[in-house]
Nucleic acid binder design. Structure first.
Lengths: 212, 212
DNA sequence: TAGATTGTTAATCGATTAACAATC
DNA sequence: TAGATTGTTAATCGATTAACAATC
């Protein structure tokens, strides 16, 4: 189906979706590529190119219908799906994710949480009881989990990842520095490297200061 | 100084840095662009182009000295600097960041933490006492803080951001959905949008599944 | 010296931007 | 109809890849 949309376009879709949601909530019902570009810090040309990758959602002489466009982008992203996911790690980061994100509207269903630390086992997060991490295998075997969220340090992910792979999990939201995609090329891995982001910030601050 | 290095190159630097650190720790003392490319899931050409943006760190016929290269990239990123930063929000996400990241080696010094929730005020994080958020102004005025880490929701950032700007803070590590750069074009903003990342994962999972 | 591997220029590829005809 | 704005093709720009001379 998808005729090779570039990753750059894909990475912009969540932002379109986010801004369109805001527009819809503030009662705006149509928007031009020019206005949308302004919000996106982009150009009208790029907006039209991006949206036309997926079909003509606009109307000439009028613009794009906000609500419809938002819905379409949601469908393209597949947010209506419910990929069953397990969260590994109920430390601060795991808890932040479990409590702040609304998985149901992001294409996932968080179905279980596992943790090694005994003090955290049995506590509740978003109505889900934190389970001991040696029960992962039994749990995943009996369910159709296809995704794992990894909020564990690299050292903890390393010995665990093979088991997850064997259990058939192929999709990873990875906060650790373990390079999953390199070891398992047939997986889908979205990395969130917070320290990389901070280093980039550092560079950009210094660059700006140097310019003056 | 910096002669307009593209953002793509900059975003790769933290990864080079990370892998070079690993190589150094495992006792490797030289590496070729070919080997480094393999680790980076890149090409030898790109590695050489990237590194040559900043000068000739390699030696023909030999390769790149791991330790030296790592050090140089650290300098380019400015990790030796210590930008004074305050963390706003000591919820799960704020605590995760405060406890997991080693700011000192990432170009920053976390100097204070502020929070609204009374139950968290007075608790310690990494040796720093969480302060009430109405003391931000007095604190920043007397210090040379130039950076803020924002782990608050959009609604909390919105009324706060003007104050931070007035206090002279121009650098933001922003976890909220508030669009700082759009309102204040003369700031440096590094956004971490976790939900965008998750939506991208969702798309890529569906795309992969559709291909089969 | 011969072999290896960089530094750097040139070629290719892809993404962004511009332009404009189509059309609401 | 006239005005506005999309859809889409063409032009430009920049990034990646390839090639090879320089050199350790």
């Amino acid at each position: 189906m998808a005729k090779d949309i570039s990753i750059q376009v894909i990475k912009r879709l969540p932002r379109y979706y986010r801004f369109l949601t805001e527009l819809e909530n503030s009662g705006v019902d149509k928007i031009s590529s020019t206005k949308l570009a302004e919000i996106m810090s982009s150009t009208a040309s790029q907006v039209r190119q991006d949206l036309n990758c997926f079909g003509g959602f606009g109307q000439q002489g009028y613009g794009y219908p906000v609500s419809k466009l938002r819905e379409e982008i949601g469908k393209i992203l597949g947010l209506n799906k419910k990929h069953k996911a397990v969260l590994l790690g109920a430390g601060n980061l795991g808890r932040a994710i479990a409590t702040h994100l609304n998985f149901d509207s992001l294409g996932f269903q968080l179905s279980a949480i596992f943790e090694k630390d005994h003090r955290l086992i049995g506590t509740m997060l978003r109505g889900i009881k934190v389970m001991p991490d040696d029960e992962i295998e039994a749990y995943v075997k009996d369910s159709d989990v296809d995704t794992a969220f990894l909020t564990l340090p690299k050292d903890a992910v390393e010995p665990l990842i093979e088991k997850l792979y064997q259990l058939g999990i192929r999709n990873f939201w990875n906060f650790s520095h373990f390079d999953i995609a390199r070891k398992y090329p047939d997986t889908v891995v979205e990395n969130v490297h917070l320290s990389d982001s901070l280093m980039t910030l550092c560079y950009r601050i210094n660059e700006r200061t140097a310019d003056e």
